[in-house]
Design a binder for these strands. Structure first.
Length: 747
DNA sequence: GACCTGCTGCGGTGTG
């Protein structure tokens, strides 16, 4: 055991925490910890600690917080309370294990609180609310609703609020809910409580500070780890799509003739090639293969398993995604962590953050990543303990013939992957989207505040949620319109003295446990084999008895379909294809599209491209120039006009809405806009008109968008409020006008 | 044309 170098930060810790640091055998505290400890211990400011995975940031926060709680315990006033909020139950369980060791033998209760925790533990906390409470936003919401009358006494000794994985909350409904809950707690105890945000690399520290403390971003201390990222070994591999050996029709005919069809003959050639390459390079070590969709996860996990079986070696490739049962997922996680035999997980973003699965030898990514931020997060799983991180990206592009539409000749998947890789290397990360109103979450919070107080006034709601509060941007007019709408839809009712109460519909919603989550989840079938549940499947997928499908890395036939209990019974079979799980597309950032444009215009060939990817890069550039896209943004395509502004999806969507409003029917299609039944001259005229007139109100543009309802309680909004909400989260008039000016100037 | 996350209190019955 070595003694850590004494430092001011170390000396300031409670003796019990100093002992814990000694027991770790650390040579010294890390730079991040040296900075964080005094900032947190002071207790007079909010702090954000941004550091790569395994950077010791949890200890940086826990050491001073536990010190302060222990010091309070020595006083007559008694021990205070710290709240640790996590987006994942699994993370709470992990942190509970760590804190249990840190507080071993000390009189400092640590209580985990989420849906899987037995009530007895929770009652213990309600009796003696002190020490450290580890909780999810949903469970905290439940406490506000269920124990509203005693909220002030429960949290009266609150000294800190820690938010782990801060980046996971910014810009989404759950983040609005969390901000609102933190604000409501401070209101009820009538004082400001220091907040500590822990995060991986954040794209924009000022934005993160504004999220953590909406009314005082300037006063948030931000501590960014300067520890250098280790070495990175990188390759992008390019593949051309090759049709399966047998077309679906040929395969069916062969089966009808009684002959057996080899699974491999029904799979695309490039998919087989990629799975074989993965098998060769990954076998024998622990790895993560990110396949971008649950359907792809199933396809590749199945092919990799078959290769193991054909060689008669133990299966070491397993699927992992959100529709698989908890048991199946935990089996894979345990295998990865144990490191006793090689395990490769083929996964979606399920293994991107959170629980500790140990270090893996390499990361593979099939298809272009959706975001630089998630690329960075994925890479953080590899290359710990001084070893180089290894990343292989597999890109498939279609074969070009005379029928290939012009935009598909640009090899957009490869260019997106290279652009994101370049941005990753230059340390850029997408800032989270912000400015969304999330009226759906405001509905939830209004119902929750009413439950907490057993009724309140419109003014009370405004004060609790909007006035210098997280929903300030909603504005009074929209707030009043929302309350009226909630009255009309039965969410609210008003008593004779003006008190707002739950309406009949609101009562029903609040009294069901599904109320506590701010986000929505689709209805699903349960999938079972011999009575054992192996996962779920979205209910809007067409499934029939006798169908074949791949799931959990195996092949099945649908035995029974029970619509009343939403249950599907499966039996082992040899055929099948991966189901499509549905979902909506991600949003690509302006900077990524600009980087793609630079790549098309440039000459350089990144060293990390294999021969196949180099060819695709050269082809993309050739067609880019051949189509004249180096000189113009417009492409005549028969009756349609394609426009290539090389801007992000939100700017493109806004511009499409502006053109549509100017009577040029326009839609975004991948990286470009498609204007229907028109000419380049007409589009250019329309752009000039848009540039010349006053800035269009995004709300008016949103009025033309169909199917705007997407968040949990959007169904209760009328079209006006839906448009307000949609405009706030999916339209950016300034960005669109910049494109318009650019396009007008270049012609 | 993508992914992920979360969830209470009560009444009934059984057991020590």
């Amino acid at each position: 055991m070595s003694t850590p170098e004494p430092s001011e930060a170390f000396e300031s810790l409670h003796p019990a925490m100093q002992k814990w640091v000694w027991r770790q055998g650390w040579a010294a505290l890390r730079a991040t910890q040296e900075q964080t400890i005094p900032a947190v211990l002071g207790g007079d400011c909010d702090v954000i600690v941004a550091a790569a995975t395994a950077g010791g940031k949890t200890e940086a926060a826990f050491l001073p917080i536990l010190s302060r709680l222990l010091a309070g315990g020595d006083d007559d006033a008694g021990m205070g309370l710290a709240l640790y909020i996590s987006p994942l139950k699994a993370l709470i369980n992990d942190q509970y294990g760590r804190l249990d060791l840190m507080t071993d033998g000390l009189d400092l209760p640590v209580v985990p609180w989420h849906g899987d925790i037995p009530q007895k533990l929770k009652h213990g906390f309600l009796k003696h609310p002190r020490g450290m409470l580890l909780i999810t936003p949903e469970s905290l919401e439940a406490i506000c609703v269920t124990h509203g009358h005693r909220l002030a006494s429960l949290f009266e000794r609150l000294e800190y609020v820690v938010v782990d994985e801060l980046h996971a909350f910014i810009g989404v409904e759950r983040g609005m809910q969390l901000q609102s809950l933190m604000h409501r707690l401070e209101l009820v105890i009538r004082r400001r409580v220091p907040r500590v945000g822990l995060s991986a690399t954040l794209g924009d520290m000022q934005l993160a500070a504004g999220f953590l403390r909406p009314a005082g971003a300037q006063s948030v201390r931000t501590i960014v780890s300067t520890e250098d990222a280790g070495e990175l070994k990188l390759q992008i591999r390019g593949y051309r799509q090759v049709p399966p050996a047998l077309s679906p029709r040929q395969a069916e005919a062969t089966e009808e003739s009684g002959a057996e069809v080899a699974v491999e003959d029904t799979i695309q050639g490039d998919v087989l090639d990629i799975s074989q390459h993965l098998f060769q390079v990954l076998r024998g070590t622990n790895n993560l293969v990110f396949a971008n969709s649950r359907g792809n996860v199933e396809t590749y996990a199945d092919l990799l398993r078959r290769q193991c079986e054909q060689l008669r070696v133990p299966v070491e490739f397993f699927p992992h995604h959100g529709s698989l049962s908890k048991e199946l997922r935990e089996h894979v996680e345990t295998g990865l962590k144990a490191q006793t035999q090689p395990v490769t997980a083929v996964c979606t973003s399920t293994l991107e953050m959170g629980i500790d699965i140990g270090s893996v030898a390499s990361i593979a990514q099939i298809g272009p990543p959706h975001q630089v931020a998630s690329m960075r997060q994925r890479l953080g799983r590899s290359g710990r303990r001084g070893e180089a991180a290894v990343l292989r990206i597999y890109i498939q592009e279609r074969e070009i013939d005379h029928k290939t539409p012009a935009p598909d000749r640009l090899r957009p998947a490869l260019f997106q992957a290279v652009a994101m890789t370049e941005l990753l290397l230059s340390r850029w990360t997408e800032p989270p989207l912000h400015g969304a109103l999330h009226l759906s979450t405001l509905i939830q919070q209004i119902l929750s505040v009413i439950a907490q107080h057993g009724g309140t006034t419109a003014q009370g709601l405004w004060n609790a949620l909007c006035e210098n509060a997280p929903f300030a941007a909603v504005g009074q007019d929209n707030f009043v319109a929302l309350l009226r709408r909630m009255g009309r839809t039965g969410l609210l009712s008003q008593s004779a003295d003006g008190t707002l109460l739950h309406g009949e519909v609101g009562e029903r919603i609040v009294n069901h446990y599904s109320f506590f989550a701010a986000f929505t989840t689709p209805e699903e079938f349960t999938l079972a084999v011999d009575g054992k549940v192996i996962g779920t499947l979205p209910i809007d997928r067409p499934v029939a008895e006798g169908d074949y499908l791949i799931f959990a890395g195996r092949r099945w036939r649908v035995l029974r379909l029970d619509m009343t209990h939403k249950r599907i019974d499966l039996a082992r079979a040899g055929g099948g294809r991966a189901p499509t799980f549905g979902g909506t597309a991600g949003i690509v950032h302006d900077v990524v599209r600009a980087e793609m444009h630079d790549l098309y215009c440039g000459q350089e060939v990144p060293v990390y491209l294999d021969a196949g990817a180099q060819e695709l890069l050269a082809e993309g550039r050739h067609h880019f120039h051949d189509l004249g896209l180096d000189r113009t943004a417009f492409l005549d395509a028969g009756e349609d006009v394609f426009v290539f502004p090389w801007a992000g999806d939100i700017a493109l969507d806004t511009l499409a809405a502006m053109l549509t409003e100017s009577r040029i029917r326009t839609q975004r299609e991948g990286v470009y806009l498609c204007a229907r039944d028109t000419t380049t001259a007409a589009v250019q005229e329309a752009l000039k008109r848009i540039a010349a007139r006053d800035q269009p109100a995004p709300v008016e543009l949103a009025a033309n968008v169909e199917n705007k309802a997407s968040e949990k309680y959007d169904e209760f909004l009328d079209d006006d409020l839906l448009s307000v909400d949609w405009a706030s989260r999916r339209l950016d008039a300034n960005a669109a006008l910049q494109i318009v000016q650019r396009l007008c100037a270049s012609n």
